[in-house]
Simulated assay, not measured.
Amino acid sequence: MKRRITDQGSRARKKIIIDSFIVFFIIISPFVFKMHEYVSEDPNATLKILWFTLDRNGFLDLSTYVWFLLGKLVPFYLFIIWFFTCKHWWYHIILIPITMYAFQIFEVVYSEDLFVDTENVLWLLPVCMVIIPFVYFIRVKLYDKYVHGIDLDAMDAELKELKERERLREEGLDD
């Protein structure tokens, strides 16, 4: 009994710590987005963070590049938090904007093109082709069950029972 209470207490503490981190990252999101204001506007400036070095990467200056990058990163991590904490049946649809932002971030960081955010919609098509039918299928199942009162499992069981009766009746007539 004491062991069970201890397990529940440690689980509750762990959940509070994880939830606190999630809330912290949501709270600081506007401040993270505004970090570009503290980056140099000098066209030749670079920024070294740990083992990463950021330069202007084709933008006018480093501040513009960081502004553009944070404009993608902040919604990206907020969508990820939403995806992992959402308890609704449709939460898989959140993968579409997550994928969109992931492609945009990849394009901003690794692209050598003069234009960004141009053709990433084409990269989303395969993701959408998987996610949208999956979510629609779940919606149809839920709608049939809870709105129309159609229980497909019960219908399958009833059809099997009818087929079994029909089979027994035919065997009885053949004998």
Rank of each mutant, 00 (worst) to 15 (best):
K160T: 03
L69K: 02
F21W: 08
K15T: 09
L54F: 15
I98V: 05
G71A: 04
R165P: 00
H92K: 13
Y38E: 11
L73A: 08
T6E: 15
A12Y: 08
F137N: 10
E107R: 03
N44Y: 10
R165N: 08
G58A: 10
K2I: 14
F24D: 02
G58K: 12
V32M: 13
H36L: 01
I96P: 02
Q8S: 12
E164Y: 05
T6M: 12
W89Y: 12
C128R: 01
F83R: 07
F33G: 05
I16P: 00
L78Y: 07
L73Q: 01
D175K: 14
L60S: 14
F134H: 10
G71T: 05
E166T: 10
A12M: 12
R139Q: 04
D19E: 11
D19W: 08
K160R: 10
I105A: 03
Y65N: 12
K15L: 12
K48P: 00
V39S: 04
I150T: 06
T99W: 08
L69N: 06
G9M: 11
W51A: 12
I17L: 13
F134C: 02
F33T: 01
K48R: 13
P97K: 03
N120H: 09
I49S: 04
M35Y: 07
L122S: 09
I80W: 09
M100K: 05
W67N: 15
Q8W: 13
K2N: 10
F25P: 04
L124I: 09
